[in-house]
Nucleic acid binder design. Structure first.
Lengths: 131, 131
DNA sequence: GAGCTTAATGCAACTTAGTCGCATTAGTCA
DNA sequence: TGACTAATGCGACTAAGTTGCATTAAGCTC
């Protein structure tokens, strides 16, 4: 069952905006910002923000903060990863390291009694070409 | 040599705003936002933002994003740590786990040729009292 | 397919975080 | 004490995100 089918089965409607936004995020191989979605799909700004909140609440996308101005969004269909961000050219690379972090996260839950829902791990630096 | 002395030795001025902001961040045991600084010190908003940028460029403070609306700032005098954030009551706890992450970071630098300047690792969840 | 219900959308006005240019103030040094 | 200029304050601005409300359209029943 894909994301749209899952939403339908939960009683949510399959609208043009919803389909387009979800598809755009699933196809994109880099995080996407709200205004990029507005620009490339022509969907209203409020709708985009509401839909992003909704998809996040449905656990289908996540948000990340790289430059400290705006959120970016990624589909969760892709396998979980972290980011390496060049503070000069703003290039984003993906990074894997979850085995270690999962172990730590479970320990953390036990120690703190927090129920951990997600984590974010971002590295900031200067890429080879910018050095 | 403390932060202020270091700034002075580099030719920067020791002003009231600078002293107050640095002191506030050093004394606080939780991350502080720009508007909290404006409110509690009565320093002008532009000055606060400029000063925060400046202190960050001098490597004396760091910024973190927890709720996705605004930056928060911490003194680097405190030992490096990460955050555990309750998405309900917005309580922030500090977390240590740097041995592992440092090893990983060095490997990452080698693999990607990035020169890594900093990283941020935040955990989001629900604290015991909010569960 | 027509009619009904209401989730989802679009619009416009608003809020909030952060930025910028410029005139003024106040550290620092001689 | 005076001169130099880094730092400040003010006000106007931008950009990201939010909200209320009237309208539209997805999906169900007949």
């Amino acid at each position: 069952m894909n994301n749209l089918e899952e939403l339908k089965s939960k009683g949510f409607r399959i609208t043009k905006a919803r389909t387009a936004i979800l598809e755009l995020l699933e196809k994109s191989n880099a995080p996407v910002s709200a205004d990029e979605i507005v620009a490339s799909l022509g969907v209203n700004k409020s709708t985009v923000y509401r839909e992003l909140d909704f998809l996040e609440s449905q656990d289908m996308i996540t948000d990340i903060r790289l430059d400290n101005a705006k959120n970016m969004y990624e589909s969760k269909s892709k396998n979980h990863h972290h980011h390496l961000y060049c503070i000069k050219c703003k290039k984003i690379e993906e990074v894997d390291m979850d085995k270690d972090l999962d172990v730590f996260e479970r320990k953390l839950e036990k120690d703190t009694k927090f129920k951990i829902k997600k984590h974010s791990l971002e590295f900031f630096g200067i890429c080879l070409t910018c050095q």
